[in-house]
């Protein structure tokens, strides 16, 4: 199989890309893979630059007033924690810190969909130690919502019970220490 980019060397990297919901096959040689950004750091077999540039390039061409406003606002998206702007992110293709995920969240799902075959929600391992809190936090939120409902409907006796349950759960949650070393 020859490389689809240079048509000279044999293709040695083979993968699919999802563009607008349809899968395309890609067969490139190592040289072109590096040149065209299909691989980063010689390990990841994926063209993120390609994906990102493809994603952003088409936006300005289909302008109307509303979307042009959106684009202006997207330039102002910035992660307050690490200082990275959304624009920088699209250029580098890497996040600056964990908080970038929140800061740019409104823009990220289309990217995740493209990179991960349409998926946007994690389904896999949860950290053993801090993960137990995630489960409890979920419970806590549910109880708090219930408490509000009970107070609204003036069912104070039940509300008191739920409030006690909330206290119990809160006791069980370990303080989420700073992740800094």
């Amino acid at each position: 199989m020859e490389c689809q980019e240079c048509h000279e060397r044999p293709a040695t990297l083979h993968f699919t890309k999802v563009i607008n919901g349809s899968k395309t096959e890609n067969h490139v040689c190592e040289h072109c893979a590096k040149e065209k950004g299909y691989v980063s750091y010689g390990e990841e077999a994926y063209s993120l630059h390609d994906l990102l540039s493809g994603l952003f390039n088409f936006e300005p061409s289909s302008l109307n007033e509303q979307t042009s406003k959106d684009i202006t606002s997207q330039h102002h998206l910035k992660c307050l924690k690490c200082g990275m702007t959304y624009q920088e992110f699209t250029k580098v293709g890497k996040f600056g810190c964990a908080s970038c995920y929140d800061a740019f969240s409104e823009r990220l799902n289309p990217i995740f969909r493209r990179v991960h075959s349409g998926n946007i929600v994690h389904d896999g391992k949860i950290p053993k130690r801090i993960g137990s809190n995630i489960h409890q936090k979920k419970q806590l939120n549910e109880h708090k919502e219930k408490l509000q409902e009970l107070i609204q409907s003036e069912e104070f006796e039940q509300a008191a019970q739920v409030r006690d349950q909330i206290k119990e759960i809160e006791k069980g949650i370990k303080p989420n220490g700073e992740g800094e070393v």
Partner: peptide, 12 residues
Amino acid sequence: FDEKKGYLTSCP
């Protein structure tokens, strides 16, 4: 780690 996004990495 994020409940919805899982382990947060530098590259998407």
